[in-house]
């Protein structure tokens, strides 16, 4: 862990002497995540420092750090069950146009205290902002209960998380947080934004990308399935027939 602090200090030295009064300088323990066959989740350390050329403007309020990681977004249909003739069936549905497959928000305090609602809106921070419905069908009045359900289900699956104490800030200068990536991760570019806020106002933003990619056998199977579907299908059948025959032969030998 000491190595991390050394890198952070080096970054600090680099960052100082540039324009803005307070700047964020950040680093990631890794900017690539390889999904291999035995991938069981991963943890990424986001760290950094606050660079200043003048003394900290403490009169503007306390300094806070917000670390946000957003996975690739896909449209989702949320359906609600209702009892129809004694059976629970899907009735109302809401298309959520924007919902990240993964969303992690770590802050140095409760979100509404570290960043004002206006700034949350402006930068699109928080699950209320990232999970949105564009044109709700008029027959469904309470679309918010559908987006709430989406956030609830994904939080339960470990895909969404909001932590008011996730970021450790030392001496208003050095910060670090661990982002837990679950095993059921989707491939894509994970946008990482690090906000520096003083008194609820965003002072500086630093943006990075974590590339999550399948690799090895996983990559090969996925590519084959999408690029040569017929060959892939035939290969799957060949594997199935071979396994069936193999087991049959093995048992025949065993019985002798």
């Amino acid at each position: 862990m000491r190595g991390v602090w050394i890198i952070a200090a080096a970054l600090l030295a680099l960052g100082s002497g540039l324009g803005a009064s307070e700047r964020v300088v950040s680093g990631l323990s890794q900017n690539r995540v390889a999904i291999t066959a035995n991938f069981d989740g991963s943890e990424i350390l986001v760290f950094g420092a606050v660079g200043r050329e003048a003394p900290a403007p403490v009169e503007d309020g306390p300094l806070d750090v917000i670390v946000e990681v957003t996975g690739p977004s896909n449209p989702v249909t949320v359906r609600r069950k209702e009892r129809v003739l004694g059976i629970w069936a899907n009735r109302d549905a809401v298309d959520v146009n924007l919902a990240p497959s993964f969303y992690s928000l770590a802050t140095t305090g409760p979100l509404d205290e570290v960043i004002s609602p206006a700034e949350q809106l402006r930068y699109g921070v928080g699950t209320d902002q990232v999970v949105r419905v564009a044109g709700p069908p008029p027959e469904v009045a309470d679309t918010s209960s559908f987006t709430d359900a989406l956030v609830r289900i994904r939080t339960r699956d470990g895909l969404y998380s909001e932590s008011g104490e996730g970021v450790e800030l030392t001496e208003e200068t050095l910060f670090r947080t661990d982002i837990a990536l679950p095993a059921n991760l989707v491939e894509g570019d994970y946008r990482t934004r690090i906000f520096l806020a003083r008194g609820g106002e965003v002072v500086d933003v630093s943006e990075r990308v974590i590339a999550v990619r399948k690799s090895g056998l996983e990559r090969w199977i996925y590519n084959l399935a999408h690029e040569q579907p017929l060959l892939y299908g035939l290969l799957s059948l060949a594997v199935a027939l071979l396994a069936g025959w193999g087991a049959s032969e093995a048992f025949r030998l065993l019985r002798r």
């Binding site: 399935a225 579907p229 017929l230 892939y232 299908g233 799957s236 396994a243 069936g244 093995a250």
Partner: peptide, 29 residues
């Protein structure tokens, strides 16, 4: 059916199939 799903929906998971069928073929015997 497998071929139809593989070519139209890309939903045949070979890794899943292999694990299920390793158990399955032994069980069937």
């Amino acid at each position: 059916t497998t071929l139809m799903h593989a070519t139209q929906n890309y939903t045949v998971d070979m890794a899943l199939a292999v694990l299920l069928l390793l158990g399955g073929v032994v069980g069937a015997q």
